[in-house]
């Protein structure tokens, strides 16, 4: 089993450091955000499996030639307090250390995931209570214009903003718009914003980001956990943009972005703003909206799918057959 532990350790190291660094700025994410999202999810799962699996497989290697067998033997000998048999197996303290490390790391990751999930649920419930008390449903002409909005709520505040609050079911999900946004946008632009937020809700983006949020909280000292979290958040925005573009015009979406992102005080130019304008647009998401790149070719998408499947399959197969 030791060679397999080594392979898992190498996989864990590769997925933990170089891969996120390369992937978080890979150009293809602009062309097919779905493909990049799939790859990130596969990396998170495969990385978690291999980083926990490697020390456990190594630690159990003296006990048998496959993981299930070694687990059973280790448990049996420990419970029976068969010290003679244990001594014969030549268990090095390193093995015990690795075993503890693997179990602790796995426990830490799972507990952080659970804690993050609970925290998110609590915060969301509290936020929803406030939304219910403080907002009024969107009504009238604007509601008709932004057809298909079942639950857009208006908050009385002058800052232009829009966000969504995911619920367990889509009926419990809410899109919240501020009065400031409502006043600054044309109905068509407003409809594009609402379509963007609805795409977040319909595609359940909050579930896609959850594991990365937990990863980041569990291993904040590993710089690449931050890359993963930011990259996945950015991808959800691109996916939501694509969802909005399926029904609304690019101009409406861009205009609504310009209004809701910038400060209201347009007359005060900021230091560092450039008369050329164009050169300042650096955000990948904006660039992608302004100059839409061609989607990935079928072959490239198939390749990404294959890589994701291999990433998920490899550590699983290694663990089961080790």
């Amino acid at each position: 089993m030791e060679p397999i532990a080594l392979v898992l350790a190498v996989l864990a190291a590769v997925l933990a450091v170089p891969v996120p660094i390369l992937l978080h700025e890979a150009r293809f994410r602009l062309r097919s955000p779905w493909a990049a999202m799939l790859l990130w999810q596969a990396i998170a799962l495969a990385g978690g499996l291999s980083i926990v699996g490697a020390p456990i497989v190594y630690g159990l290697s003296p006990f048998g030639s496959s993981l299930p067998e070694a687990l059973l033997t280790a448990a049996r000998l420990t419970l029976m307090e068969d010290y003679a048999a244990l001594a014969e197996l030549e268990v090095h303290p390193w093995h015990l250390f690795a075993l503890c490390l693997g179990v602790l790391l796995g426990g830490h990751l799972l507990l952080t995931l659970a804690r993050t999930y609970l925290r998110v649920l609590t915060a969301r419930r509290r936020h929803r209570q406030l939304v219910e008390l403080l907002s009024t449903p969107l009504q009238g002409r604007q509601a008709e214009q932004a057809a298909g909005i079942s639950a857009a709520q208006i908050i009385e505040h002058e800052a232009p903003l829009a966000y969504c609050l995911p619920g367990r079911t889509s009926a419990r999900s809410v899109t919240v718009l501020s009065r400031g946004l409502l006043e600054q946008l044309e109905p068509a632009e407003l409809a594009a914003v609402v379509a963007h937020e609805r795409t977040h809700l319909v595609q359940r983006h909050h579930l896609l980001t959850m594991a990365f949020e937990a990863w980041y909280r569990a291993l904040p000292w590993l710089p690449t956990t931050r890359y993963g979290r930011e990259a996945v958040l950015e991808l959800t925005e691109m996916l939501a943009d694509d969802g909005a573009l399926a029904q609304h015009s690019r101009e409406d979406l861009l205009r609504s972005l310009a209004v809701s992102s910038g400060s209201a005080e347009q007359e005060s130019p900021r230091p560092g703003s450039d008369a050329e304008g164009n050169s300042l647009i650096t955000g990948a998401r904006l660039r992608r909206l302004l100059v839409p790149p061609a989607p990935l070719s079928l072959a490239a998408r198939a390749a990404v799918l294959l890589v994701s499947a291999v990433l998920l399959g490899a550590p699983t197969v290694l663990l089961l057959t080790s």
């Binding site: 998110v120 915060a123 903003l161 937020e197 983006h205 992102s261 703003s273 955000g283």
Partner: peptide
Amino acid sequence: AVLARFIGGVSECEAAALR
């Protein structure tokens, strides 16, 4: 924790350029 996604995420400079 709120996981609210605000349509922003665009810097002020970029928004000005966009306008």
